[in-house]
């Protein structure tokens, strides 16, 4: 429900290029041949520098937080299906446009040291 106009900026911003590249790589994989979404793929984000990469789901890893690509990051059906002529990177950028402010807040809270706010010391 938070709007961008009133949102404080998380102290450590999420690294956009690595998130975009991870999502684009996912789109490349699941759209190769017949479209086949992979419910085991997650976007993992490292606490120290907020960079992200794509991996299979596993138990939690120290210093990381992860989010399921299907259903959690992108909950609409067929959201990760490439349209005719669309590149994975273009699609990734469109998808991230829709979730970027919210994703920044999620990650800020998941790495917050206390429960006193996402930028609490």
């Amino acid at each position: 429900m938070t709007t961008m106009a009133e949102s404080p900026v998380p102290r450590i911003p999420l690294d956009y290029p690595s998130v975009r590249d991870a999502v684009a790589d996912y789109l490349l994989q699941v759209n190769h041949g017949a479209y086949q979404p992979d419910r085991k793929k997650v976007l993992s984000v490292r606490k120290t520098d907020r960079t992200a990469w794509l991996r299979d789901v596993s138990s939690p890893v120290r210093g990381e937080a992860f989010y399921f690509i299907e259903g959690e990051l992108f909950s609409e059906k067929n959201a990760t299906r490439l349209q005719a002529g669309e590149t994975p990177r273009e699609r990734a950028e469109k998808l991230l446009d829709g979730i970027w402010p919210q994703l920044q807040i999620w990650i800020a809270y998941d790495f917050a040291r206390s429960t006193s706010g996402m930028n609490a010391p």
């Binding site: 949102s7 959690e72 999620w106 006193s116 706010g117």
Partner: peptide, 28 residues
Amino acid sequence: RAVIRFLEKHGGQGVAPSNEAQYQAIGM
């Protein structure tokens, strides 16, 4: 976040105040 998605799938809206950007504790 999962509960919010559940509510949205059932036609509602959900807000978790403790995960909202404006949320904070001032002087505890």
